[in-house]
Structure formats: structure tokens, C-alpha cells
Amino acid sequence: SEHYTFDGEEQAIRFMRDMEAKNLKYELQIHNGKYIIQVD
């Protein structure tokens, strides 16, 4: 699995939509205002 970190919500949402379009599962965590997305 890989981790991707985003500072902004818009970037994170765009990335998650992209993952959904590719049928990839992901998990979102928010730490200290950063959006951390783990992709299986």
C-alpha cells in the first residue's frame, strides 16, 4: 500500500475521486490538518 499526503481538502477530494474512478480502495485519515490517503 502507498500513502499520499495532501495539505488541502480540495486536492484530497480530487485524488479520492480519481481513485474511485479507477476502482481502487483507499482510506482517509486526517492528522494535524493534513489529509493522508492510504491506497491498497
Rank of each mutant, 00 (worst) to 15 (best):
Ser1Ile: 13
Ser1Gly: 11
Glu2Tyr: 15
Glu2Gln: 13
His3Cys: 15
Tyr4Val: 05
Tyr4Ala: 03
Tyr4Glu: 02
Thr5Ser: 10
Thr5Ile: 14
Phe6Thr: 01
Phe6Cys: 07
Asp7Ile: 07
Asp7Asn: 07
Asp7His: 07
Asp7Cys: 12
Gly8Gln: 14
Gly8Ala: 13
Glu9Gly: 03
Glu9Trp: 15
Glu9Met: 12
Glu9Ser: 06
Glu9Arg: 10
Glu9Phe: 12
Glu10Asp: 11
Gln11His: 07
Gln11Gly: 07
Gln11Met: 10
Gln11Asp: 14
Ala12Met: 05
Ala12Asn: 01
Ile13Ser: 07
Ile13Leu: 13
Ile13Arg: 11
Arg14Lys: 12
Arg14Val: 09
Arg14Trp: 08
Arg14His: 08
Phe15Asn: 00
Phe15Gly: 00
Phe15Pro: 00
Met16Arg: 01
Met16Ser: 02
Met16Asn: 00
Arg17Ile: 08
Arg17Glu: 08
Arg17Asn: 08
Arg17Asp: 05
Arg17Ser: 07
Met19Gly: 02
Met19Thr: 03
Met19Gln: 04
Met19Lys: 01
Glu20Ser: 06
Glu20Pro: 01
Glu20Arg: 06
Ala21Trp: 07
Ala21Asn: 09
Ala21Lys: 10
Asn23Cys: 12
Asn23Ala: 07
Leu24Trp: 09
Leu24Gly: 03
Leu24Arg: 11
Leu24His: 07
Leu24Tyr: 09
Leu24Glu: 04
Lys25Gly: 06
Lys25Gln: 08
Lys25Arg: 11
Lys25Ala: 09
Tyr26Lys: 00
Tyr26Asn: 01
Glu27Gln: 13
Glu27His: 13
Leu28Glu: 01
Leu28Tyr: 09
Gln29Cys: 10
Gln29Leu: 13
Gln29Ser: 12
Gln29Asp: 05
Ile30Gln: 05
Ile30Arg: 05
His31Leu: 13
Asn32Glu: 10
Gly33Gln: 04
Gly33Met: 03
Gly33Glu: 04
Gly33Thr: 03
Lys34Glu: 04
Lys34Ile: 11
Tyr35His: 02
Tyr35Ala: 01
Tyr35Phe: 10
Ile36Gln: 04
Ile36Ser: 05
Ile37Met: 02
Gln38Leu: 14
Gln38Lys: 15
Gln38Thr: 15
Gln38His: 14
Gln38Met: 14
Val39Arg: 03
Val39Ala: 04
Asp40Ala: 13
Asp40Pro: 12
